[in-house]
Design a protein around this nucleic acid. Structure first.
Lengths: 264, 264
DNA sequence: TTTTTTAAAAATCTCGATATTTTTTAAAAT
DNA sequence: ATTTTAAAAAATATCGAGATTTTTAAAAAA
């Protein structure tokens, strides 16, 4: 399989089984998503189209750094890698503009959004605002199911953290998924669509920075106790305390990144 | 020439008087727009691609109500109206998802985002936050050029407001443009990209609600003095006062809309 | 050498045809 | 009469070729 990011090197098109392969991938995804508990985005249930499939692949590859910041996204190149048509790929890229993970300039194509320390600070400041607002409302409105969701997510996260110590590189993806679920569970009772919408966008942005810094700096502080404290404060309905803890949590998460990015 | 908005697929249950009135005005606007039949791709403010052209046309038509909330956006239909290919149209629609003016559901196509009183309240609350943050930072950092920009924008807005009294229907577009420029000038010195990004999205949302309510309720309170007060406070670097005034200004702007939307 | 011009290469952008899915309509069955 | 099934129609989704623009490279001019 050819690399996703290369300056040259084109493989001859083997379109014979292309369609069959696509169908295979799609049906596999559908089944997988049927068992999935989480609607991916906008209340959509499962990836029903190739656009959606390409959108998710691209988002994953941008966030985990496979597609580096500011790199050019040449349609012809990546469309062959993902085995889809050019129009379909363009549509997926256009959707990623919504998440500010991709930028587009007329007649000059698409690029992975750049990263910078200024942007990291801006993202974090805004995210603290959104997370606090969402958490505060959740604490006010959350019912028993909300509490149960938090406890369950925390438990899953804790389990993964145990295994993370043993096999760090393998478990990173799983930890990120559980971490996302835990933070989502905390604010699950918030009813403000715009707060949640902006929060989600910023969460993806933060995750990209976090994973970028993890590539060079493998050290991981003990976030377990921080999560536990946040959970306890939320379940005890101490809104002010919980929001302060979330703020500190997000600040600490980026502090390590600042020094790394400063070198770049 | 066929109409831009087909009536097919409309549920018969919603036959309130207010609704009928709006629909009547809507179709009037619609005909007016379609009778134009201008060569569609002329003086389009520097759009470098057809995608960008279609994106702007669609955004305008959604905001000014030509394309009503929740209406289906059938690719084959609208692509012929705008005279572009289907893939190009899909890409433009995908970009509009970024602005939350269009929603997309797999295998079921695109729709104009719905409106509701709950969403209006949510939009306004969030927009007050973004406008206040941006204005406060602008007041701290703004230089002479920033001040000059505000004064100039206010002057242009005032001139248009004079003519607005004489010929309301014709000048609505011009007033909206000047109003947007004035509010943009106020926050021009803000450096936070994310604040500005979210603010812009929410501004378009607000404009859609504003124009929707103006179709039935032509009465326009005197916003001139409100704008003047905001300007004076900003130029005097009274951040707290200016933010309070902006908050009140945005609150007043939506109060009229609430009663109208409540009927629907 | 440095800049300008020109031609070739590569990439983006656009289109309409075709495949797939959903929706509608009609017929058949309970 | 209501529900099921099946065929037809309509709409969405996908593709790859061709048109347009940008980028690269080389040649010509300063």
């Amino acid at each position: 399989m050819d690399a996703l990011v290369t300056t040259a090197g084109k493989s001859p098109a083997e379109n014979l089984n292309a369609q069959a392969k696509r169908v295979e991938i799609l049906s596999a995804m559908k089944e997988q998503n049927l068992n999935d508990q989480e609607p991916p985005r906008n209340g959509l249930q499962g990836a029903k189209t190739l656009v959606e499939y390409a959108y998710r692949c691209l988002r994953k590859d941008i966030i985990d750094g496979t597609l580096p910041p500011n790199s050019k996204l040449r349609i012809e190149h990546i469309r062959k890698h993902y085995q889809i048509g050019s129009s379909t790929m363009r549509e997926a890229l256009s959707l990623l503009v919504a998440d500010a993970l991709v930028t587009v300039e007329g007649q000059r194509g698409f690029r992975v959004s750049p990263i910078s320390i200024e942007d990291l600070i801006d993202v974090t400041r805004m995210r603290k605002l959104m997370e606090s607002m969402a958490l505060r409302e959740s604490i006010e409105r959350g019912d028993d199911a909300w509490e149960a969701g938090i406890v369950a997510a925390f438990h899953r996260l804790s389990k993964v953290e145990e295994r993370l110590v043993l096999e760090p590189s393998i478990m990173v993806d799983a930890w990120e998924a559980c971490n996302a679920e835990f933070h989502k569970a905390l604010i699950a009772a918030c009813t403000s669509r715009w707060t949640l919408h902006f929060r989600e966008i910023l969460y993806y942005q933060s995750e990209r920075y976090r994973r970028f810094s993890l590539m060079t700096n493998g050290s991981r502080r003990n976030v377990h106790s921080e999560h536990e404290e946040i959970m306890k404060a939320a379940l005890a309905r101490k809104a002010d305390l919980a929001c302060d803890l979330i703020d500190d949590h997000l600040d600490r998460t980026i502090n390590g990144m600042k020094s790394i990015l400063a070198e770049v």
